[in-house]
Write a protein that binds this DNA or RNA. Structure first.
Lengths: 130, 130, 130, 130
DNA sequence: GTGGTCTAGACCACC
DNA sequence: GTGGTCTAGACCACA
């Protein structure tokens, strides 16, 4: 699991944390890995991990307890969900629709891909459970 | 018509040219604005326009005729469509689906937004015709 | 027969004239095509053809008789041969040798290609005679 | 070590890097000088060095690690060798042969020059070792 | 420290 | 007129 080139690494790191909060892997008031741990686990400079946690803290998604580390905020999942939904419907979807127009891609084609995706992830989820 | 902050200006300029090729405004072997024209028309430094055309030329979307200017390549529209479709189905759509999963957004909700978007742009197109 | 992009068109035009002098197609004191003829025959701006003839005249390879056109100079072939040989042994060959070193290409391999080339052009020459 | 006039400086800079990769001075995943270092070491503006690295990156010969600098790509040497060999046998050699024909230069004469060149560079290599 | 972008202005060869 | 290159200097985000 590596990083994309077209987005700041620290933002990608923050996104991954947020993802894990969203899908329930990390619960409210649960401690998340220390800056150092997280940095080495991803082969990244410590300053970069600091910046990632900083940005999450700034958004009220995690909070710091001095000497103990960072913890998931009470309403973290809700905050993330809210801001992501806004980004999704405000930015991502309109751009996707614009491309569909330009590229002559029908909504039914997208629906079909969604079905495929759903089936695949469903499968994946089941495998994970075993 | 100005520029977004989260992408290099020269890339946005290139994208606009590509968009105009895709939707048929610019046809194969048609001359596109000179570097300087395009630069001043967008209130940008000439070097920035140079970089935009450079990137398009590198992708085989436009070509240069010495002393005459840049022209749309024969298969430009196809090239663009192909690379964009790949990006769409390979990158954009999977990410959209991933967000839908994380955010509990159903495909029917997306379909509805598409209907709204279609109606709106339909309207727009009709207005343009008047 | 079109033009390469990495050399000025007028120089390529001049080279073609020189080639035809070298291989005996154009003889001393023979008239060469008018600037206009040459320009339209190659689909090129007249000024460009003017520049090509200018550069040849500057090198003493052709001369102008007012109202009559351009003619091949007396010692044109010799001049061309001399300057080309210098360029060949001074510039082209050393660079070729340098690339051979870097690319691990042996002289015997080049010899083989020469044999192929000779056979092919021999054939070509015979066909031309028929 | 300065620059030739008949080729863009940034391309000559790129060529030098490529040469050093070809002859093994720069190995895969090795860091190359920073843009600014390379620029000042050659007495050139930083933007020119940027352009040189840009062109190498576009060809997949070097890659960027954010904040760290440029590194030699895994298969860089092969890529360079392949594209140069193609240029050599496709473009350079045929042109050399054409000139040999026009100028009545025999292959044995070229072979002799190669022997001289080989002896000279051999000598050079030995000197370098001392 | 790294590269990336952008501006302003200049000079050039070419068509 | 066209694009191509180069310089000088600036600001920025990123690691």
């Amino acid at each position: 699991m590596s990083f994309s080139n077209d987005k700041a690494i620290y933002l990608q790191m923050a996104d991954r944390i947020a993802d894990r909060i969203l899908n329930g892997e990390l619960l409210a008031d649960q401690r998340i890995p220390s800056v150092r741990e997280y940095a080495v686990s991803l082969g990244v400079n410590a300053n970069t991990a600091v910046k990632a946690y900083d940005s999450l803290a700034q958004d009220g998604i995690i909070y710091n307890r001095r000497g103990l580390g960072y913890f998931v905020a009470e309403n973290a999942a809700d905050r993330i969900r809210q801001s992501r939904r806004k980004a999704f419907f405000h930015d991502a979807l309109p751009e996707v629709f614009r491309q569909m127009r330009l590229l002559d891609i029908s909504i039914t084609e997208v629906d079909k891909h969604w079905a495929d995706y759903s089936a695949a992830t469903e499968q994946q989820t089941n495998n994970d459970k075993l």
